[in-house]
Simulated assay, not measured.
Amino acid sequence: MKNILVVFIIIIIIIGVFLALGKSDQMVVVKEGNTKQLPLKIKKGHYQDSDCGMIIDDLNFVSQVVSPKGNTYFFHDHGGMAKWLKDKPFAKDARIWVKSLDTKKYINGRVAYFSRDDKTPMGYGFGAYEFKKDGFIDFDEMQLKMLRGETMNNPVIRKKLEGKD
Rank of each mutant, 00 (worst) to 15 (best):
D58F: 06
L21K: 09
F18S: 05
E150T: 05
E32W: 09
A82I: 01
V28I: 12
F139N: 11
K104E: 11
K86A: 10
H78I: 12
K23E: 14
Y113Q: 07
I96F: 03
A20W: 13
K88I: 15
V66R: 08
V98H: 03
L161D: 03
K83H: 08
L147N: 15
D140P: 03
I15V: 14
N71E: 15
H78F: 09
V17T: 13
Q48S: 10
L101M: 09
L161G: 04
P121Y: 04
V28F: 12
D87E: 10
Y73R: 09
P39K: 07
V98E: 03
G123M: 07
I96N: 07
F75L: 04
K2R: 08
T35I: 11
G135R: 00
P155T: 01
D77L: 05
G70N: 08
D87N: 14
D140S: 10
M152H: 01
V65A: 15
I42W: 10
V111K: 15
D102I: 01
D165M: 01
I12Q: 10
N108E: 08
F126Y: 14
G109F: 13
S100G: 02
K23R: 11
D102K: 00
T120G: 03
K36L: 08
D134A: 12
A20E: 10
P121S: 00
K99S: 07
